[in-house]
Write a protein that binds this DNA or RNA. Structure first.
Length: 664
RNA sequence: GCCGCCUUAGCUCAGGGGUAGAGCGAUUCACUCGUAAUGAAUAGGUCAUCGGUUCGAAUCCGAUAGGCGGCUCCA
């Protein structure tokens, strides 16, 4: 028969398997048959287009990890008889498997499981695919209640959790058996596959990473299972590189660097998720805010200010309550008066900490009549908002309970809306680039038809979503759909930025809102004298200053570009006699607005260099006899490079220019 | 909010039913002329908080607070 192998027509015997075809390719783990991933053990149908899938390519990695998940599950069921299987898909950089076990896994258990996995791998067990009927599958999985549930769910399984589709779905039902050296089936799982031909391909480049709890099918009303996360790679070196990447992420962790660089802290006395900024962190925050405020004003925004607290009726008007009551701090009851018997003589009032700025900006809009000539009317502020985040989700600066939003609201006519969205998106992207982030993609969050959370008519949603989609597509950036992710009042575009380590963070958001203007009765007088309702467009550029600072700390690994660095210049004399010489230069730098300081401590020279290096100061200025005689200074940069005897004038100009140009 | 783990000096951590240790940091003194650690001395802890068990608790148990890893959530 004739088949096409990697684009070339070839003639092979009927019944040829992938294993036979790619026998000499040791790192081929599965094959793509007419675009579909299949086990190598399967026969290739006549006329098919086939290509080998290498373990190192994404599809191959996924198969490797999914197979490793099976091995882990086999090990767990060996060690913990009676444990029940949940799902076990591959995920980015690894895999997990959920188990219903009597006791949660301990750290020792993880090591034991890893050892048992190694044993299974060393046995070189084969993965064997069996096509079964639904009845057969139910019989085979009689002891696995969760698998039975998935069988019942059928093709819906894809929606139950990330990766659940690997279990069932996609037409026929299959069971994968692990077969030992003697040809005996030793373990089985309901699974769509495909899998590696045998376990030896997992080699010893795998690890059981951690355990955690997870809700069955991602629903918090369901049973909580124990999830084991693992990782697997084609080679030991890949595994090592992955672990090194994790270690690097840990070194860059903004929570760690925040302490080391004395930027911010989270005093227990304040409560969870409430940061305080120390002087050095305060400089970074202020530089960020100053720059962003200036740019907003350049872009036609007007800076406004609103309080941190208000009567809670405001949030009823906006529609945020009762939808989001759970994530707002509980109300404060004030102004109530009682007589001696305890009877209420004056009704009190409920106040709420502000969780969003838009209702207050609406009040500014409404404070007087508005003309179409004023639109677009753009209000902007650094609004302090407080959200009662659940205790388990608070995380460093990236998830806090008190934060500063760089929040703006553009009030426009319906006709102006597309142009304003475009304007905002361009502005947001330019700001992110100014802060050193260059790798983005967009997410379009829309309403979920089935949810009652979303208000407004279908036409309104469609129109708004259309506007956002068109503008997003015009950027040429990757656009990822996020159905059901919209706010209750309208769809949103969010910008996801990738940092230096390739991790993504939701930063900016642009939301199209046709609901709040109605709820607040906002209007403007049109050219024809009629009263019209504006559309409002919400936009947060960094999301929150706190989160963005956390991202920046990690992106730059604490080595901020000069314009953001808390200390821009540290002057270090080679020995004490040069203190005065450098003190004079520091003074001149300070008059130019440079954050410069002299290290006139009693430590010796090399120690001061080391300290400056650990502090990640961008410019170290050194002066000794040679410099003094030449009326010069020497530079030492963060990468260890040095440049000696630069004339003082020139050195100052270079530092000032670098800061002004916001160069790294 | 849920599951598990953790909380000892400013930081990183060791120890462990008989009232505490190291390194770094800090302070002081001496030293100090060329690019990542000079030396010595000193100070610093109700072992998160509260309660229980015990002759005795930092150590064991419980509660609370805070943190970490996930899950759920994220206007």
């Amino acid at each position: 028969m004739t088949i096409t192998v990697s684009g070339e027509e070839t003639s092979v015997e009927a019944g040829t398997t992938g294993a036979a075809l790619f026998a000499d390719q040791k790192t081929t783990v599965v094959m793509r048959v007419d675009g579909e991933l299949q086990d190598l053990s399967r026969e290739i149908p006549a006329g098919a287009a086939v290509e080998p899938v290498d373990v190192a390519e994404q599809d191959g990695l996924n198969v490797l990890r999914h197979s490793a998940a099976h091995v882990m599950a086999q090990a767990v069921q060996q060690l913990f008889p009676g444990s029940k299987l949940g799902i076990g898909p591959y995920v980015t950089d690894g895999f997990y498997f959920d188990f219903d076990v009597a006791e949660p896994f301990t750290p020792e258990d993880l090591k034991t499981i890893e050892k048992a996995m190694q044993k299974i791998i060393n046995q070189g067990q084969r993965f064997e695919r069996e096509v079964v009927s639904e009845e057969e599958a139910k019989r085979a999985m009689a002891d696995e209640p969760y698998k039975l549930e998935l069988l019942g769910a059928g093709d819906d399984a894809d929606e139950t959790a990330e990766g659940a589709g690997v279990e069932v779905g996609g037409g026929e039902i299959t069971i994968y058996h692990n077969v030992d050296r003697n040809g005996e089936r030793v373990w089985a799982d309901l699974c769509r596959g495909p899998h590696l031909p045998h376990t030896k391909l997992i080699a010893n480049a795998f690890a059981v990473m951690r355990s955690a709890a997870a809700y069955w099918r991602g629903d918090q009303n369901n049973q909580q299972l124990q999830r084991l996360y693992g990782t697997a790679w084609p080679t030991k070196d890949d595994l090592k590189a992955y672990k090194e990447r994790l270690a690097e992420a840990e070194r860059r962790d903004h929570r760690r660097l925040g302490v080391e660089l004395d930027l911010f802290s989270f005093p227990d006395e304040l409560g969870s998720g409430l940061p305080v900024f120390h002087p050095k962190g305060g400089i970074i925050k202020r530089e960020m805010e100053d720059y962003v405020r200036r740019r907003h004003i350049e872009e036609g925004f007007e800076y406004v200010g609103t309080p941190h607290i208000s009567k809670d009726v405001l949030f009823h008007t906006s529609g945020h309550l009762p939808y989001y009551a759970d994530s707002m701090f509980p109300p404060l009851h004030v102004d109530e008066e009682r007589d001696a018997e305890g009877n209420v003589t004056k009704e009190g009032q409920e106040y709420r900490l502000k969780a969003m700025n838009c209702p207050m900006h609406n009040l500014i809009y409404r404070s007087r009549g508005r003309s179409y000539r004023e639109l677009p009317l753009r209000m902007f502020e650094f609004g302090s908002v407080y959200r009662y985040e659940q205790s388990g989700v608070v995380h460093g600066l990236t998830r806090v309970r008190g934060m500063t939003q760089d929040d703006s609201h553009s009030y426009v006519t319906r006709e102006q809306a597309p142009a304003e969205v475009e304007h905002l998106l361009g502005f947001v992207l330019s700001l992110l680039r100014d802060f050193g982030l260059h790798d983005f993609y967009l997410e379009l969050s829309t309403r979920d038809e089935d949810s009652e959370k979303f208000i407004g008519t279908e036409e309104q949603w469609e129109q708004a979503t259309d506007v956002l989609r068109r503008v997003a597509e015009d950027t040429g950036l990757e656009l990822v759909p996020d159905p059901g992710g919209a706010a209750y009042y309208g769809p949103k575009i969010s910008v996801q930025a990738r940092d230096a380590l390739g991790r993504t963070w939701q930063m900016s958001t642009i939301q199209y809102d046709f609901n709040q203007p109605t709820r607040f009765g906002l209007e403007y007088q049109a050219a024809d004298g009629s009263r019209q309702e504006p559309v409002m467009i919400h936009s947060a550029k960094f999301g929150s200053i706190e989160r963005f600072m956390g991202v920046l700390v990690e992106h730059y690994a604490g080595a901020f570009p000069a314009w953001l660095a808390p200390v821009q210049v540290r002057a270090i004399p080679v020995a004490e006699p040069f203190n005065d010489y450098l003190a004079e230069i520091v003074k001149r730098l300070k008059t130019r607005g440079v954050r410069a300081e002299l290290d006139d401590g009693t430590e010796r020279f090399p120690k001061k260099i080391r300290t400056a290096s650990k502090d990640k100061v961008p410019f170290v200025l050194i002066a000794g006899g040679d410099d003094h005689d030449a009326d010069a200074v020497s530079f030492r940069f963060r990468d260890g490079e040095q440049e000696n005897q630069v004339p003082v004038e020139e050195a100052i100009e270079r530092i000032v220019t670098t800061i002004e140009q916001r160069e790294v």
